[in-house]
């Protein structure tokens, strides 16, 4: 059984029910035709149907004997998910501090640490990464703020 698709089916059905419940709170008045609740309810029904279809598809498929995964593969996946979580945490920190510290400091720090996360097994060249992060942060700032007049949070340096 494809557990992934089965779980997805259950999730999609739950999403449909949640949407239906949320749609009960919509204020609506429509003299003719359908109102503001029509499509949300239709979509929630759609989710339930599609989720059910997905589950039926999974159940109808004959069992396939899964290949045994060895321990090195498991360790690899774990490592991979660890770096994905690290990347998400880094971006969340970047966004949280952006308005107080400002773009230049935040992005330089972010680029530096994100390179370290992505470079995982390579030889870490800290000085090079540091130079790259400072230069690219300054260049993008000057380019976007001065030349293209896009607003960016300046923070404590502004």
């Amino acid at each position: 059984m494809n557990k992934k698709n089965f779980g997805l089916g259950v999730f999609v059905i739950a999403l449909g029910f949640a949407m239906f419940l949320a749609s009960l709170g919509i204020k609506d008045f429509a003299a003719v035709g359908v109102g503001a609740t029509f499509f949300p309810r239709l979509a929630s029904m759609g989710f339930v149907i599609l989720g059910a279809l997905l589950i039926i598809q999974v159940l109808r498929k004959p069992e396939t004997t899964g290949r045994e995964t060895d321990s090195s593969e498991v360790a690899d996946t774990r490592k991979k998910y660890y770096s994905i979580v690290q990347s998400i945490v880094l971006i969340v920190l970047f966004l949280t501090l952006l308005e107080t510290l400002g773009y230049i400091i935040c992005s330089a720090l972010y680029i530096f640490f994100q390179i370290l996360v992505l470079a995982n097994e390579k030889k870490k060249r800290y000085v090079l990464y540091g130079i790259i992060s400072v230069i690219s942060s300054l260049t993008t700032y000057v380019l976007f703020v001065r030349v293209f007049q896009v607003m960016i949070p300046r923070g404590i340096l502004g």
Partner: peptide, 23 residues
Amino acid sequence: KHILLPIVITLCVIGSYGLNNRM
């Protein structure tokens, strides 16, 4: 790519912020 992608992300942030100037 490990050097390019982080820079790309900062550009993504600028782009999304610059649209309405809100986090």
